[in-house]
Design a protein around this nucleic acid. Structure first.
Lengths: 226, 226
DNA sequence: CGATTGTCGATTGTCAACAATATTCTGTTG
DNA sequence: CAACAGAATATTGTTGACAATCGACAATCG
């Protein structure tokens, strides 16, 4: 296993994570990072050689990645990076919107002032980042906002699906939120979600959470058509 | 393995399916059939010996089963049959209800008289089965009804999730539909779904499809409490 | 010339052996 | 007798080798 931070000895001696986890993360990074193209076949042998492991862990990691829909395996032929059609991406947006709605509704239904405070901090931070034109940081904060909602909603399966679908849709590899205008609109939607959560309005939280993602889908379509 | 795509399977020679597929199906059958208890550890060695294969395919099959949430793997410790808490089961019902709503809505939005005819046949058949007190056949027809909707909805990812969640919830292993009264109620709900689909009423189809599953959740709770 | 068949190289599927890790047992000690 | 340390055992993690299969190209036949 190649080691990004040059400590190969330590990593080998005190390895606690199974190799398959390392390989899995590396493969996921390669796929989501665009180092391997959509539809491309993942050659077990060369991957194993690249990472300095045998084919076993590579195979298991590939099966694990199949779970998240990042790759599809064909018998006697190999695993291919999944290629997302526009219809696939739109369906993923819809599914994700449903999950997000449930997660927001669940958070709105539970007490916990600190949760709301954390969310408010994130939304305020995002406004600052927009003002400073720091789009990369905005994406990070945006991710943190949604992850935080998902983490505290108490719906583990829904959360894991939400996260997995998020990775899956990234296969489509199209940055929808570009331009400050989109960011402003996006964070305004965050505020509406937050307001519903703070008000304990379950149904509104569900609707706003879902609409936020459906708007993302709409922006995707506009980006493609315009 | 179904052959939906154009795989050349002309020869009737018995197909040599990859072993991992056989092992996977066998494990799934054992888990869903209750041959191994929830929370029990799956011993790679004894399973491999039982099935007459080596541990490799067993390991891969286990990882594949993790995809459907039927088992959970712990590093250096093995894979365990997933144990579902009541909260887990309820969450799965909610998720499945959402998927079902989307699938029904999608079918309602598309043309195709033969699809509706097939569904109507199934509903009529189920009424006959109720009249004949053939509960086992009813369960089969019920499954066919929902599978058929999922199959023709044109939402592949939603369908696969719906099916996987269906297997997952079976881990809770509690037959909710017992007694003819429940069957009558259940098929009445089927008719409402069908009516909305035939009318092309997308929103009603979504609501009825979702409610049908939420009612199943309600019946589960009533079974447990009463 | 086109289609079919045979062969070859590359790749995946499977296996059994070895290494690392977790669990159980056992004997000792306070 | 309880608690602990360490060995013994069982199980998972990993590996390299071998078998089965697939795709491509060349040879053969009509």
């Amino acid at each position: 296993m190649q080691n990004a931070n040059g400590t190969p000895e330590t990593a080998q001696r005190f390895r606690q994570r199974p190799l398959v986890q390392e390989v899995r993360d590396e493969l996921e990074r390669m796929i989501l990072g665009g180092e391997v193209e959509a539809g491309e076949r993942l050659n077990e042998i060369v991957l194993a050689r690249q990472m300095g492991v045998s084919r076993g862990p590579v195979r298991e990691a590939a099966r694990s990645l199949e779970r998240e829909g990042l790759v599809r395996a064909v018998a006697n032929q190999g695993v291919y990076v999944r290629k997302l059609s526009l219809e696939d991406a739109l369906e993923l947006y819809d599914l994700r919107a449903l999950m997000a709605g449930e997660l927001c509704a669940s958070v709105a239904a539970m007490p916990g002032a600190h949760i709301r405070a954390d969310l408010r901090d994130l939304v305020d931070t995002m406004d600052d980042l927009i003002a400073g034109d720091d789009q990369d940081s905005y994406f990070t904060a945006n991710l943190a906002f949604h992850d935080h909602i998902a983490a505290v909603a108490g719906l583990e399966r829904t959360r894991s699906l939400y996260v997995a679908l998020g990775k899956e849709v990234r296969l489509f590899r199209l940055r929808v939120l570009n331009g400050l205008a989109s960011l402003v609109v996006s964070n305004a939607e965050h505020r509406r979600i937050l307001a519903a959560i703070e008000a304990g309005d379950v149904e509104t939280a569900r609707t706003e959470g879902r609409n936020h993602h459906l708007n993302g889908k709409r922006r995707l379509l506009e980006t493609l058509n315009g």
